[in-house]
Design a protein around this nucleic acid. Structure first.
Length: 818
RNA sequence: GCGAGAGUGGCGGAACUGGCAGACGCGCUGGACUUAGGAUCCAGUGGGCAACCGUAGGGGUUCGACUCCCCUCUCUCGCACCA
């Protein structure tokens, strides 16, 4: 029974239950069918979903449902990025255990996702805070440790003195701690690192194969990896045995070096500077962008290319982490060096002249481009590019330097002084040193006896039952690592876990590469926010390669196609709690239903662009669905007597009927191509609206017309079903068809039936539209020209002028040049 | 500063490889039905009385430019001392 009014509350829960009871979206590996792995970035279980999730998951669901109707074996899973700071903060603030807080949130949010009618295979759900999941973080860590890909070293980190803990970069806001507002300092600490730089070259090379990714994201990845070709050269410190090794990409400017700078943490800095207090001043400003300061060491070093004596400075702007931690400074050709030289009165010597430039005005800034060498001994007159090569070779021959490729990419520091993360599976023994936890003792489970105070560093350190262990090697007393892993580790392989299914995630033993992984991977379509353009996506590319090199999987590239959806904007700003401009999905679903919520977020903008929220637009989406509803309701009696069979090859239709059938076929074509072409759902939905508008204006006069209407309605419902699955199912079943839309095949169009038999020929005179003429479609150009020239209005506008040229475009227009 | 992208009605947005600019939706105007309508339906809707003018601005290529080329402006987003 179809009610008169469209009431989503009455139909949506019914169909959600139907899908769940019949396990319609459960997927099994089936080697005989072509697979499609459709994945949306899993959410952090913060408590409730927001409109960004609705948009992200609506996009993914349309793709998954569409691909199913196209016959693919579709894997469409969902899970939870469940470790993270908010859970721990909730524990500090409200005394709820992070685990309880997280699982309660998951339960609520899972309900919200189901209310949206998303077609997930929940049998594959993962929560990263589950020991069955994070044990594999530990297992991968141990494998990497064995291969030297996980190691411990001392490094600078953001340290909040008040909270006594390390902060991630994104938790430092304007150089201050996001929680207590105290100034963050750089502190040297022992940290665990994953050697992502081992894959730097491959990660960079493979960027060129990411043809299904937005160029912007690929570029960001390339820049982040930051490969550069240069020279390492040795500058001997005068009167000592010490040598300063510098790195430069501009060997062609070697003759222009007038001083050398060391990074404050450079080992030679403290050796060359006697005055600790002065050195401390520079060190205090290390890494601060505002001001360049330096300290003359009193020492000189020798330029290997010409034997010149150059002063050695300590400079706060020189990074220890990049290159060698020391640079040669060429103020004439590097803006930073230029400013520094001016400040400290160091000479500036030009060694590169812009090509073709004769006069040389007094420099007010550095000339950083390539050019022709001057003042450079035997190299004067050469081009920069050639000089770089030749000077580097000379340095190598003389044993004073080495050509060197450098990367900006640094190894990934994963240690976090937090509770709610994966324990790093390592034991420290005073006798044996660092001892990895044996596989048989995995997982190292988070202890329950921890108090959350928000102070005093790693919470795990407070649990004596956790910290005190027996050394697996010597049996003596030992101490467990109390840091946990960065939560980005969890999300670096979850898409691989989905392929195996709940309770089946394991990577040791069995046939390798794992047959299920080889069937499902890589992800065919990944959808998520662009904020992960570098971090998560780069880490995942790294992890997938590590897993490949363990033999578990064959391919190293995880995501074939990537769609980065735009933000949801309201009142000119990104929707966010802090801005107070959020729209609550629960409210929206209650008031308009999930079909309307989905439809609006798909219709208002193409997926990759920002979406401007509009309450009125939502109502428009609801009205559209209501119109379809009442169209079926109004005609239900007659429609149930009608049959869509035969409509598509029928002669004997009324003119109006034929026109509507044509429109339907055109709509099938447009919707299909719009989805295939960059997922432009907004124009696909617009086409469906056009078809519905035409159906609304269609007055069936006989049984044949009613057959046409039924055909067009069925077509509309099928085309609509990926976007608004509930109403499609409901009306489909109201027309007494079985089974449901999601088991149906995507409609196909006939070019013949879609073709117009008449076109409106536009007649232009000198490029301006002067007349329009209905003519039969498919006329050859010559006939179009003749028709245009003979038109009454043409003569009128020509006013007797001679026709110079006539251009005809088949099926479109004729332009008469006079 | 470097890198990427975008500027189209009152608004969100259409326009495939150059071919009727403004599809579709919102809003607005008028009308119908109503005790009433912020419900629904119908019609209209870039500007201008007009010729004409209109896709950020200025040049260019072309029979023809939102689309291609050059210059300028504005905005958004990344990365920002990577030597």
């Amino acid at each position: 029974m179809v009610e008169e009014r469209y009431d989503p509350k009455k139909i949506e829960p019914k169909w959600q239950a139907h899908w769940a009871e019949n396990n319609l979206f459960r997927t099994e590996k089936d080697a005989s069918r072509k697979k499609f792995y459709c994945l949306e970035m899993f959410p952090y279980p913060s408590g409730r979903i927001h409109m960004g999730h609705v948009r992200n998951y609506a996009i993914g669901d349309v793709i998954a449902r569409y691909k199913r109707m196209r016959g693919f074996n579709v894997l469409h899973p969902m899970g939870w990025d469940a470790f993270g700071l908010p859970a721990e903060n909730a524990a500090i603030k409200h005394g709820v255990h992070p685990s309880q807080w997280t699982y309660e949130n998951i339960s609520y949010m899972k309900g919200q996702l189901n209310k949206l009618g998303l077609s997930y295979d929940w049998d594959r759900e993962v929560a990263t805070c589950n020991p069955e999941y994070y044990t594999w973080n530990q297992w991968f860590f141990l494998r990497m440790y064995e291969k030297g890909l996980a190691y411990r070293k001392s490094s600078y980190v953001n340290w909040c003195p008040s909270c006594a803990t390390v902060l991630a970069n994104e938790q430092v806001i304007d150089l201050k701690c996001w929680r207590c507002d105290s100034v963050v300092v750089q502190k040297q600490l022992d940290q665990w690192f994953l050697k992502i730089t081992h894959y730097a070259e491959e990660l960079l090379q493979a960027c060129d194969e990411l043809t299904g990714w937005p160029e912007k994201v690929v570029t960001m990845q390339k820049n982040w990896i930051g490969k550069s070709y240069g020279l390492e050269a040795d500058f001997a410190v005068e009167g000592t045995e010490d040598v300063i090794r510098i790195y430069t990409t501009r060997a062609d400017t070697l003759f222009g070096a007038t001083f050398v700078c060391l990074s404050p943490p450079h080992p030679l800095s403290s050796k060359l500077v006697a005055d600790r207090a002065e050195l401390a001043k520079v060190t205090a400003l290390y890494g601060k962008a505002e001001e360049k300061i330096g300290l003359f060491t009193g020492c000189y070093c020798i330029n290997p290319v010409n034997g010149e004596r150059l002063p050695v400075y300590i400079a706060n702007f020189v990074l220890m982490e990049y290159g060698t931690g020391a640079i040669m400074s060429v103020p004439a050709h590097d803006q930073r060096d230029f400013e520094f030289a001016q400040k400290y009165g160091i000479p500036i010597r030009k060694v590169i002249a812009p090509e073709g430039e004769t006069s040389r005005p007094e420099a007010v800034e550095a000339y950083e481009d390539d050019g022709i060498l001057i003042n450079s001994g035997p190299y004067s007159g050469l081009k920069s590019s050639e000089a770089r090569e030749r000077i580097s070779e000379e340095m190598e021959t003389k044993g004073k330097g080495t050509k060197k490729v450098n990367f900006k990419l640094r190894d990934w520091g994963i240690s976090r002084q937090r509770y709610w993360g994966t324990p790093i599976p390592v034991i420290y023994c005073s006798a044996c040193g660092i001892v990895p936890v044996p596989d048989k003792d995995l997982p190292v489970i988070l202890p329950q006896d921890v108090r959350f105070t928000g102070k005093g560093g790693s919470p795990l350190a407070e649990s004596s039952s956790f910290v005190s262990v027996v050394c697996p090697q010597c049996g003596g007393p030992a101490r467990r690592e109390t840091d946990t892993m960065d939560t980005f580790v969890d999300s670096s392989w979850y898409f691989i876990a989905y392929c195996l299914g709940k309770g089946k995630v394991r990577f040791d033993g069995g046939r390798l590469p794992h047959p299920d992984l080889d069937y499902w991977m890589p992800v065919d379509q990944y959808i998520g926010g662009v904020e992960h353009a570098v971090l998560h996506l780069l880490y995942s590319r790294f992890f997938t390669r590590v897993i490949r090199d363990l033999g578990i999987i064959s391919q190293g590239e995880p995501f074939t196609n990537l769609l980065t959806q735009g933000m949801v904007i309201k009142d000119g700003a990104k929707m966010s709690k802090s801005k107070g401009n959020v729209v609550d999905p629960d409210y929206l679903i209650n008031r308009y239903g999930s079909d309307t919520s989905r439809l609006f977020s798909l219709f208002a903008a193409p997926p990759e662009k920002d979406l401007d929220w509009s309450d009125k637009g939502v109502e428009g989406a609801f009205r559209f669905l209501s119109r379809i509803w009442s169209l079926v309701y109004r005609n239900l009696g007659a429609l149930s007597q009608a049959s869509s069979r035969g409509v598509s090859d029928a002669a004997g239709l009324s003119d109006e009927g034929r026109a509507l059938v044509r429109k339907a076929h055109q709509t099938i074509k447009k919707v299909t191509l719009d989805i295939e072409r960059e997922y432009h759902f907004n124009t696909a939905i617009a086409a469906l609206m056009e078809l519905v508008n035409e159906m609304n204006g269609f007055m069936p006069k006989d049984a044949g017309d009613m057959n046409v209407l039924r055909f067009c309605l069925e077509t509309t419902l099928l085309l609509l079903s990926p976007f608004t699955p509930h109403i499609a199912e409901e009306l489909w079943s109201a027309l007494e068809n079985r089974p449901g839309t999601s088991a149906q095949v995507w409609p196909s169009w006939s070019e013949g039936l879609a073709r117009e038999d008449e076109i409106e020929l536009v007649i232009q005179i000198n490029g301006k539209v002067r007349a329009k003429l209905m003519v039969p479609a498919g006329l050859p150009e010559e006939e179009l020209k003749a028709l245009a020239l003979n038109d009454r209005k043409t003569a009128e506008f020509l006013g007797g002028k001679a026709v110079k040229k006539v251009i005809a475009v088949q099926g479109r227009l004729v332009n008469i040049v006079a």
